[in-house]
Design a binder for these strands. Structure first.
Length: 155
DNA sequence: GCCAACGTTGGC
DNA sequence: GCCAACGTTGGC
């Protein structure tokens, strides 16, 4: 069992969209490091959903990895924004996994608050200029954020 | 909307 | 294989 964080711009695809659909293919990943993380995901892995490019960026809820990696069909589609002419059906470059909705936090765990947590001191998430859209989360990071989220929900 | 920081591309 | 130019990410 591993844990991950996936960033998304809610204007493009939000946690609310995932909630409405229940499960979605997480397509459009076009970064090799993120792609490699996708390839090491297993069904049942925990996923934090992070909203970027908003007034208060942060972790807004959780999801579950619902499939192992498979080729992202948008890379083959000339009509798609994510089309990659350098990719082919024989040798696909980009993969995706399906992600299933788990829960929405009553209050977002903001980037600002993550910066103050010792658990995240070493995380690329809080480093300036970080552009990784998918990154691994340690078990202690996972537990800590979940506990915080439950706490804000109770009060 | 701005712009720093980054990853990728392509000429050489 | 270097590295400048370019496009994109994402906090602010």
């Amino acid at each position: 069992m591993a844990y991950w964080l996936m960033k998304t711009e809610p204007e493009a695809f939000s946690l609310e969209d995932l909630q409405a659909r229940g499960q979605e293919p997480w397509d459009g990943i076009r970064n090799y490091q993120a792609r490699n993380f996708i390839r090491s995901m297993a069904v049942g892995d925990g996923v934090f959903i992070y909203h970027s490019r908003v007034a208060v960026p942060g972790i807004v809820g959780a999801a579950t990895v619902a499939s192992t990696a498979r080729p992202d069909p948008t890379q083959f589609d000339p009509q798609s924004h994510y089309y990659d002419p350098g990719s082919s059906l024989e040798k696909p470059r980009w993969d995706l996994v399906d992600v299933a909705y788990r829960c929405s936090f009553a209050q977002c765990i903001s980037l600002e608050s993550l910066r103050h947590m010792p658990e995240f001191a070493e995380s690329p998430l809080v480093r300036k200029g970080n552009r990784l859209s998918i990154l691994p989360i340690t078990e202690s990071q996972w537990q800590h954020v979940l506990q915080l989220a439950e706490h804000t929900e109770a009060s």
